[in-house]
Design a protein around this nucleic acid. Structure first.
Lengths: 138, 138
DNA sequence: GTATATGCAAACCGTTTGCATGGCT
DNA sequence: AGCCATGCAAACGGTTTGCATATAC
């Protein structure tokens, strides 16, 4: 993890009010170190950490992802019943879900317009609108 | 299960090319017997069957829901990592997901317009577009 | 008669948790 | 010092599966 990456991870953790432990810094660096948006599962992040030579237990990856979510640093995206995905991008935006590889990516949002969204029923408010464009091989 | 319900369930199974066993007829009757759209989980359908006095094992409910899906009689909708939802309505339409009760319902589709849907990436085709409007208590 | 469906219990897999240890402030 | 994070292994919950039995064709 470079100095820039480290710094980015540190300030990111601070924003969430989370203690900068070695494991959290490592995971934060992998998530936001290069400033790009990222979509991970617990397993994929665990694998990336191992690859990078970081020693973090799988349980800690799970706990940390949950902590990042609760701190508002990540969003959970539900696209596959089998596993949870986490997105470093926080605003409401559409996703591509690649059914053949189980990958999740951002869909170009420029053009997408959702008009006349149904009104929330009495006593309810819209918490979020998830748009998932499922892709299969052509 | 009334005669009408039974008949609806039978023709429904035939459409999927599935053998009309006692259990499948019972579940089909609960799903499409009244001609209304329905959103169920394995557990909720199992409970409904028990309530109706139908003897079906939980494993069979799971296997049958899967079979119905593969036969194109149901659609699976992913809104909650914890459990699978099945929808008797087959066309692409938006859903309300009630976060406080974990219920899934159809959202009024009349007005919703999605314009400028991002093009599918090279070599891929859009398999489905899932729109889930998550509702929380106001 | 043959292929397929059902039921039960055990396996499964992603995720969570209890508890002892170690680290941050 | 005190609180919180980590790691391991065991528990968990929804779902699937192996296998013996029963049912549709």
């Amino acid at each position: 993890m470079s100095l820039t990456e480290h710094h980015r991870g540190t300030t990111w953790l601070e924003r969430g009010g989370l203690r900068p432990t070695r494991q959290r810094l490592a995971l934060a660096g992998l998530l936001v170190g290069d400033g790009l948006n990222r979509h991970v599962t617990a397993e994929s992040l665990f694998a990336a950490a191992a690859q990078a030579g970081e020693k973090v237990s799988l349980a800690t990856v799970y706990n940390t992802l949950r902590a990042f979510c609760e701190a508002g640093l990540l969003n959970e995206v539900v696209v596959d019943g089998a596993r949870s995905y986490f997105d470093t991008r926080l605003d409401d935006h559409p996703h591509f879900y690649w059914e053949d590889s189980n990958a999740l990516t951002d869909a170009p949002v420029e053009d997408l317009v959702i008009s006349n969204l149904p009104a929330a029923p009495e006593g309810m408010a819209v918490s979020r609108v998830d748009v998932v464009i499922r892709l299969k091989k052509a």
